[in-house]
Design a protein around this nucleic acid. Structure first.
Length: 273
DNA sequence: TAATTACCCTGGGGGC
DNA sequence: TGCCCCCAGGGTAATT
């Protein structure tokens, strides 16, 4: 399932095929994903040129002069760049013909989204879905102090506070478990009970885990296929995620699985206090 | 008012 | 073969 590294790997994969190229056609094969597709998107995009690509959290941004196409991959979505004329398959919901190729979005579980933000409505950062997002974890502003300051009023478990996305974005279920393991913090610890030193370890762990996943091409589990059709392989380096009962790679104690906020959490009770 | 919790959407995969 | 249940991200509504 795409998390921040997969979205960033996807962005880097599609960017050279989109930037500076002009849209020649847009096609939808479904009424919508999480939300209905934007009305008249073909009229909005055809004839316009992609100026740049970007990313905010797990939202992929395709910038035009007159607005931004916002794409979220949900939990099973992926983008591919294809030559024209390839027959769409069952879950291929959205095509954008551009520069002699086709950007195709596939999303079996349809939790993803394709949205349009018009430049007349101001910066895309003001979009309803983007304006409440926390800081980017790979940006300079994000560090242990940032985590410490923004968790003073938060009594919920640190794992769930990370997932909420209002303090730091892009730390999904997999990377939250992995980062907490590396920082040696028990995922059930109330966020406001963690001090500056441990938050510094956590911030560093989050940066390292995400950067390593991007470097390695993103995780795959079952659903992620990179833009060139190759799978990433970060899952080979998991310390705890999906390793219930297997020995901790540090101390050999069995990895535990608990449920927090209806999500599975994996941790080592011996290493994480 | 803000934080937290519960629920919901979908469909692949595993277990029986 | 077919049925049922679980799981996932994250928005929204309900509750604390």
């Amino acid at each position: 399932m795409p998390e921040l590294p997969e979205v960033e790997v996807t962005r880097r994969g599609v960017a050279p095929h989109l930037e500076g190229q002009t849209v020649s056609a847009v096609e939808f094969r479904h009424t919508g994903l999480r939300w209905p597709f934007p009305l008249a998107l073909a009229q909005t995009l055809v004839g316009h040129t992609v100026r740049a690509t970007g990313r905010r959290g797990k939202y992929l941004l395709i910038h035009f002069d007159h607005g931004t196409l916002i794409i979220h991959l949900g939990m099973s979505g992926h983008l591919r760049i294809l030559p024209p004329g390839i027959e769409p398959k069952k879950h291929d919901h959205f095509d954008m013909a551009i520069g002699g190729q086709v950007l195709r979005m596939s999303d079996p579980r349809r939790f993803g989204a394709v949205l349009w933000h018009d430049a007349a409505d101001g910066s895309v950062e003001n979009h309803l879905l983007l304006r409440t997002l926390g800081v980017e974890p790979l940006e300079g502003r994000f560090d242990g102090q940032w985590l410490y300051r923004h968790t003073r009023g938060r009594s919920a478990a640190i794992k769930q506070v990370l997932l909420a996305g209002d303090i730091v974005v892009g730390v999904g279920n997999i990377y939250a478990s992995e980062s907490l393991f590396r920082a040696r913090i028990n995922p059930r610890t109330p966020a406001h009970r963690i001090g500056p030193e441990r938050y510094e370890r956590l911030a560093q762990a989050i940066r390292e885990v995400l950067a390593a996943a991007i470097e390695q091409g993103g995780s795959t589990l079952k659903d992620f296929i990179a833009v060139n059709g190759q799978s990433g392989y970060f899952q080979q380096s998991y310390f705890v995620y999906a390793r219930t009962g297997e020995p901790c790679r540090i101390c050999n104690a069995p990895v535990r699985q608990i449920v927090q906020g209806q999500r599975s959490t994996f941790y080592c009770a011996n290493c994480q206090k």
